[in-house]
Design a protein around this nucleic acid. Structure first.
Lengths: 175, 175, 175, 175
DNA sequence: AATGAATGAGATTTCATTCAT
DNA sequence: TATGAATGAAATCTCATTCAT
């Protein structure tokens, strides 16, 4: 429900009804409508992080492009496996407690560090601002998949992955 | 107000009060708080489109990279010139009338066509899906600037522009 | 407008617009929405009274039944000649200033006196309460015409008049 | 409250307060103030119908005049037993949902049929239009009682009943 | 622990009325 | 005298939250 009518449009009664419990029961389990949202989002994000780091570990010793491909593939896979959850995590949603936007900033720091290493190793053009590049890629990737999940005539997952890999800062600016 | 507390958090009374008019006056001019939002957004988007096409025209005969740089610079400039408006346009905002998300899809089609031309001219790797690449870049760019406007320690505009240019599909995948 | 959407449903702006003047102009002429209503109603009532007393005068020297027939015919005629005005006068309408219901009580006193004379002259059964009979006939007659004006398959005016005459206290209870 | 300040003058807050519940509670039980009105009215009408048909049944085998007297007496009794309810049912009240006027048309059809039978049996002058006569009597009776409930110097119930019986089409036009 | 009727603060919206032009 | 934009009081209605059962 958070995914499709949106956070602001759902009400607690409806949530409870849909869950097959009474309104009171809802409040026995969650502080708030927003608490549920935050929890959902945090779970989704944790799940995604988990998948990404597993993919990253597995590809640890491969060349950079293969590493990138592994994480991109894991990301795309996550979006496909649970589109609603993906939308909750990345489609934002306003509200007290600054619930929204959390997904967007996600893991930018980790990627930023990774890019900084590459840059120091001379693998990444020095004109690139690593903080910006990390945010750019993360935002682009996550919003692209949001579009993809609803697209009338969506590209194949493989095409998507190829494109994202080709456009990844660590791959692009190797020279 | 739409930029900072957010669409869902503002109410018509507050808007009217802040505008120095009565509530009734607000409703004499706008159907809804959403109507105002939509109008604001449409205006902002139109303004941005205008600036982008001007920049694009001016750089028409220059090499691809210069063209890209011109539009990216215009985009960054727009964000800088009116951060609040920029947030209204790109930070989304749910609600009846499907106000939100409009900015995100913005002009993807135009860029998609441009990339397709380059691809047919052999200037863009054929593995790239142009629809995806266009959405990716647009989303990445607009969300990056959203972060940038609020960043504690933001990169310089020039650094930002360099980075975005370096990561633009039309620049990246030239070979 | 008072006749068909009803007093409570009309607003001053609409009235003024329909009259081809500004709202302000409306208030230059009438204290109130209700003042207009009252004036309309008073006019209608005065007009009706006028017609009724003319008819009554003209039939002054005829037998009772002919007198009754004359006033009933005048009443029916009035309803037919301006149905909207008729509805304003008799369809009631709530509101401050006790605008409504005025038509209903209309002229009951005059008829009551007339019936009392007949009763004292032995022309009307003494079991009849003249106050009640007068109210009864007036209300019955006015509401009947309200129905008649909108009826899908309305009786002819002549049939209506015959019926009302036949049921008029002064005619009925002559013995 | 519908009886005395009138439908248009009451608001949901006042109703709820008077009922000793919160506004929300009111809306949990009724769609609208109009829904409550309609329900009240429908109940009142049903109650009245019930009483009338009981009275009618009980007098089934008596002469016409006694039958009429029985229903008229039941009607008067109903008005006396719950004046407020009576006013709600018969005093009308405009508004969305076409709440008003319902009471006025009440049961005219049944009476119309009854009169038609009498007419065919030669018990009722053929000049009488039965549809009109039925509406006339019903409207006259119900509005008369409305006046009676508030009259400064009201006739006795017995006098009222005598008068209404004497003026009833089925009694009057017997020859 | 689960329930859902009750609550009322707060948001939206209308509209009679005013008043500067 | 005519105008209509501006006003804000008041009405409607929603919904997050509580609490007695």
């Amino acid at each position: 429900m958070f995914a499709s009518p949106g956070l602001a449009e759902v009400n607690t009664n409806t949530i409870a009804r849909a869950a097959g419990v009474g309104v009171g029961t809802f409040y026995a389990h969650f502080e708030d409508k927003f608490a549920l949202y935050r929890e959902l989002m945090a779970n989704g994000l944790a799940m995604l992080q988990q998948r990404l780091s597993e993919a990253s570990q597995a590809a640890r010793d491969q060349p950079i492009e293969a590493q990138v491909r592994a994480t991109v593939a894991a990301f795309v896979d996550f979006a496909r496996s649970d589109p609603s959850l993906y939308r909750v995590v990345f489609a934002g949603g306003e509200g007290p407690g600054r619930a929204g936007r959390a997904g967007v900033g996600f893991s930018a720091r980790a990627m930023e560090n990774r890019l900084a290493e590459l840059q120091q190793a001379g693998q990444l053009a020095s004109a690139i601002d690593v903080a910006a590049a990390a945010r750019f890629f993360n935002a682009g990737q996550s919003q692209l998949l949001l579009w993809w999940l609803d697209a009338a005539d969506p590209p194949s997952p493989a095409g998507l992955i190829d494109t994202l890999v080709a456009l990844h800062p660590a791959v692009v600016c190797r020279r």
